[in-house]
Amino acid sequence: MFHRTSAAVLALGLLVAAPGVGAQDARQIVQEAQRRTDARSQQYEGTLKVFDAKGRVTDKRWTFARHGSHGTSKAVLRFTAPPEVKGVALLVINHPERASDQWMWTPAIARERRIALQDRSTRFFGTDFSFEDLEERDVGQYEYWLLGEETVEGVRTWRIRSRPTHTKSSQYTSSILWIRQDRYAFVRIENYKDEQLVRRLVYRHLENVQGIWTARSLEMSDLRRKSRTVLSLEKLQYNVPLEDEDFTLQALRREQ
């Protein structure tokens, strides 16, 4: 889903109070949230902590680079630690009208594999994110309803329900978004499958980075598995010089 994905893992969500945006309809709010995260590119180093139901913690690190505008962007996520997974990469090429193309690169066998559309609902390599959660989708692929306003951790938010349109294939039947009224930044997203809450994403440590309000910590909880994954962002930069050719399968192979 666009708002969740872009705000969560890839674009991370940045909201600046926009003049003229007051009481609006739900779609406008989400569109404005997207507009405020616009950047030519983005780069960061992420630390991933997976807390499973038994309290075990797994650590991983990755570098993330994204290039292009919303809906047509390309991103590469490359694991840097632990050593066993170093070099494993995921290339995501987003399309505004359909699901993204995703490939995983495994350096040990020097092979890429396509992540099939049917597999997008599966967990992203043992984390609580799914492959679908890594997609960047266009606002137009969802329908929105403003459910009301709510104060979350002392901050006023809009509470919006979204549902994929019939052209969009998603594991989730609906989601509820909380968007800060002051910065148009996402605060929380709850994802439902047949009215059952399955995943919750919480945005924390909102900071202004190069004029873009960005959550530096994201926590995704899988409510059925009772596990959670915390992604922390370091060395975050926007509008860094990146080239289109850095986001191809050839580039993945080259940089192994």
Partner: peptide
């Protein structure tokens, strides 16, 4: 129980 047994699914895939 479920995937936890594969100590780390990413390692499983990353290591041939």
């Amino acid at each position: 129980g479920d995937e936890e047994l594969i100590d780390d699914p990413l390692v499983f895939l990353a290591q041939p």
